[in-house]
Every structure is written in C-alpha cells, then in structure tokens.
C-alpha cells in the first residue's frame, strides 16, 4: 500500500515535470523541470527495488548530464533567456512522424519485454546475490558483446570531441596572429 502511494507520487511528479519541460518558456525553468523528472524516475526505480539503476540514474543523468545544460543556459543573459522566437516550429513539425515512430517502437519493445520476462526469477537472484552483482553478471555474460561495442562507440565519440576541440584552437591561433 505504502509502496503504491510512493510510486503514484513519483509517477505523477515525473509526468507533471515532463509537461513542464515542453510548456515552460524560460529555459532555466525547463532544465529544472527536466531535473525534477529525472529525479522522479530515479524514485520510481527505487520503489521498484532497482537500487543500482536508481543510483546510476541520479549520478549520471540527474547530476552529470543535466548540470551541463544548467552551466550553458545560466550563462545566457536573463532577458534573452525569455525569448521564445528561437523555437524551431517548422523543424519540430517535420520531426513529429519520426518521433512518433520511435515511440511506437518503444511501446512494442516494452510489450515484448513484458511477455518475455521470466516472472520473478530476477527478483530471486537479486535477493540472493545483490543488485549490483546481478547487473554485472548479466552485462559481462549475456550482453558482453553489446557492452564492448557501446564502449567502442564512446571511444569514437571521445576522439571526435578531441578532434573538434583541436581544430578550433588552431583557427583561434591563426586569427590572433
């Protein structure tokens, strides 16, 4: 009962702040709404007993990623931040079908996952050997290839970032001389 109330509270908070993200005008408010929805999702993870995922959600999304939005946006002057003319309405309209397709895919995958999930088996594992251990065991056995490929993608991204950064510093030097 208590679990259901807490779950409802966090879900309501996640949905409300999700609405806030797309309706609020001031970009800093948007980021604060995003932060609140991320924290609410972490709360849902905690009520579901997925402590590791919840903690990672807090550590990576709510702190590491959202802070960069705050840093960038809070450098924008106060009056300019409120202008809504920069919204790309036309592009938003074009991208709607693609986004819709993505959402349908997500729902399909979710339904397939619900059908395929072994009922309560994972929960038993978690009780026996702990949350972080289960995730580690699954990552390094069943999904080992995918895990390594993802790390390769991250490496590519890092190299790309370094390359872009170097190029800019060169042109900067050229301009000043």
């Amino acid at each position: 009962m208590g679990k259901l109330i807490i779950f409802g509270f966090f879900s309501l908070m996640a949905i409300l702040s999700g609405i806030g993200i797309i309706t609020l005008k001031n970009p800093v408010y948007v980021v604060v709404a995003l932060l609140s929805s991320l924290i609410a999702v972490a709360g849902i993870f905690f009520t579901a007993g997925a402590e590791l995922v919840g903690a990672l959600q807090l550590l990576i999304y709510a702190v590491a990623i959202a802070i960069f939005y705050i840093i960038v946006i809070s450098a924008v002057p106060w009056q300019k931040a409120k202008k809504s003319e920069t919204h790309h309405r036309f592009e938003g309209l074009i991208s709607l079908p693609v986004v819709l397709l993505l959402y349908i895919e997500m729902i399909v995958v979710f339904l397939l996952g619900v059908k395929a999930s072994p009922k309560g088996e994972i929960a038993k594992f978690i009780e026996k050997i702990g949350n972080a251990e289960v995730v580690g065991a699954i990552l390094f056995s069943k999904y080992f290839l995918a895990f390594e490929v993802v790390s390769l993608v991250l490496l590519v991204g890092m190299i790309g970032a370094v390359l872009i950064g170097r190029k800019e510093s060169q042109t900067y030097e050229d301009d000043t001389t």
Partner: peptide, 11 residues
C-alpha cells in the same frame, strides 16, 4: 541500501 556509496556521491 546495497548501493549506498553511489547514493552518497549522487546526492
């Protein structure tokens, strides 16, 4: 919780 330390640094 069994991820206590992660929570410390997240919070």
């Amino acid at each position: 919780v069994n991820v206590g330390l992660l929570l410390v640094f997240a919070l």
